[in-house]
Design a protein around this nucleic acid. Structure first.
Lengths: 353, 353
DNA sequence: CTCCTGCGTGGATACGTTTTCATGCATCTC
DNA sequence: GAGATGCATGAAAACGTATCCACGCAGGAG
């Protein structure tokens, strides 16, 4: 038994297909026919096929969602936020996991394009150049959690300008910004989050503070540099790619090469995990020997001993807002949203000894 | 500038659209025309629209994926497995999060049906009755991690039969099983996993062992009962719904109502998390006062102190295999797959004092 | 040489919907 | 009362593809 089509409904109700379509999509119709069509549709258990509609409108409903890794709890939270909003709107979500690899990302974007999905929420892995094709293909893209890195011809001045421009929610557009953030985004207030964390550590007497970074952390690193200013030591900033192994290697290498550091700021929960593991392996006690602040308030942060002091960013909200933005796109012209972070002090930091 | 269609390619190559279609989908064509068509297609940057194809074939490619909660690391792993396989096959994935709520699940299934997605991987929340409509709508469903609960007229005998039938991979079908597992599935070997864990605890001298369960844990509970046999105490089996709050409440309630228990088996990582938290709140030391074994080997299990002894189930593999199954459906008639679990002994269990 | 077979090819159709357009009828205005 | 206005309605087109079918041509068998 195959599904009923709009034609069947029209026939059974003794009206034209156009009328059925109108009734079902809220067009005008007389009360009488509307009632009849609705009754027949219900009786036939008719559900309009998204296929026909999509083809006709030359676009697939719903939205795409690209995250680096669903195994990372933070992105799980973000995804849940997106799904919550999508469900409320009755829109389907196509998901992809990029592994923070620009190539895979590009491939996934291509696949979405092929599906004619024209709304996308992405935690970008590629740089601005990588994203240009998708944008000029007419996709509505909302970046979440971070922005694509600047073009090869990178310029700190430019980056800062773009960032601050983004944060100027209440007005006056900076005059002709070099890279206008013309694509909407939902970010956490990294600058404030990092600064608060660094200030906290400084207040505890720490001077040699390391930053453990991952892909796409340029904004956080910038904020870190800014917050540390004079005390900055470039060797204390290390990176990993998105994998757990790499994160562990970076953390372990950091601890071994710089035994003089007294505090570390891990830029993500996988990096925090790696830091705890590496510290334990090297017999460094937290917080006795080294203080640790981790980005992301994941549930297990509290389970550690000592419980981890964290910079919480609202993953669920970021996802939800991003989904709102991508759905409302065209209606309002929202530029970018910045959500607050919060330092949650638990037990992984101690005064420098 | 709009996307090129198959018609454009045909025109530019001086052939009919049918030929272009054939060349691109591997049909027969002369080497010469094939080459020309391919060249033109590449030059025009032609990508076939999934919309047209879907409508024509009356089905959307790709697959649906329904999990209870992406915030739960285990389901994150499972989802990553599915995505890995889907990416390898170049198939898109539509995701939904059910919150372990049969109603939401049904709604999401309905949405997938509307999209004409006919392949679905699900960690089911609803029971067998809930799933019947989707199945007879022609969907190819592969259940992952667990099976739908039996119908209201539940029967332990039946359940066991179905399970063992499922595990009889190498042959002779049981004669007319009451509820034939005619829908393929990928499960962890819960029976063995639970038994191993219980044996381990028994071997440490524990007798009052509690099970902390979540939605869809009927198979695990059955295995738990079976493994405990004589020592079973029904009050020591408590349940929560899928939420963190509920898990905490269940764990806390358990510890308070039964201070005599000496070990607890948490049936999932969120439940394990809750157990650790509740124990700490009640000043119960792990493993001194109570031993804990947690289902799911999530990365943070090692970070706890003491590190958690866990029953590892291969989340990634479960997802990957499920995706394979749903893609190969029709080709082979695979019944069900059971993947092994492993007890990983760390530090959260001690001999009964 | 003829008939048949087989293959490469292109025209035409169908998939299910939305939307445009024209039509007919009823109501309103002067 | 005549023309104008508005609304409900249905026929038809279009979206981009895969596939059926018929056609033509080449080559092989008889």
């Amino acid at each position: 038994m195959k599904r009923a089509t709009i034609k069947d409904v029209a026939e059974a109700a003794g009206v034209g297909v156009a009328t059925v379509s109108r009734v079902l999509s809220g067009g005008s119709a007389s009360a009488q026919t509307r009632e009849r069509v609705l009754a027949v549709a219900a009786q036939l258990d008719y559900r309009p096929s998204a296929l026909g509609r999509n083809l006709r409108q030359r676009r697939t409903g719903g939205m795409g969602l690209l995250v680096p890794d669903l195994t990372d709890t933070f992105y799980g939270q973000l995804a849940e936020g997106v799904l919550a909003c999508a469900r409320a709107a009755g829109e389907p979500v196509l998901i992809g996991s990029t592994g923070d690899d620009p190539e895979q990302e590009a491939e996934l974007v291509g696949s979405l394009l092929e599906q004619s999905v024209d709304r996308l929420i992405a935690v970008p892995a590629g740089d601005a150049a990588t994203w240009r094709p998708a944008l000029k293909a007419g996709m509505t893209v909302v970046f979440a959690d971070r922005l694509p890195a600047d073009d090869p011809a990178e310029d700190d001045e430019t980056g800062s300008a773009a960032l601050s421009d983004l944060m100027a929610l209440d007005g006056l557009p900076a005059a002709a910004p070099p890279r206008p953030p013309d694509v909407p985004s939902v970010l956490a207030d990294d600058r404030s989050g990092i600064r608060t964390a660094v200030q906290y550590l400084k207040g505890l007497g720490h001077r040699r503070i390391a930053y453990l970074g991952g892909p796409g952390h340029s904004r956080r690193v910038r904020a870190f540099r800014e917050a540390l200013s004079a005390a900055l030591d470039d060797d204390l900033i290390v990176f990993s790619d998105g994998s757990r192994d790499s994160a562990y290697a970076a953390a372990s290498g950091l601890f071994q090469s710089r035994p003089d550091l007294t505090a570390v700021l891990a830029g993500g929960n996988m990096l925090g995990e790696a830091a705890v593991l590496a510290a334990r392996e090297l017999d460094l006690r937290i917080p006795r020997d080294v203080s640790l602040i981790m980005y992301d308030d994941v549930p297990w942060a509290e389970l550690c001993s000592p419980p981890l002091t964290v910079v919480a960013q609202p993953g669920h909200d970021i996802g939800y807002r991003a989904a709102e933005l991508v759905l409302r796109a065209g209606t309002r012209r929202q530029r970018g949203v910045v959500l607050p972070t919060e330092l949650i002090v638990r037990g992984s930091c101690a005064p420098r000894r």
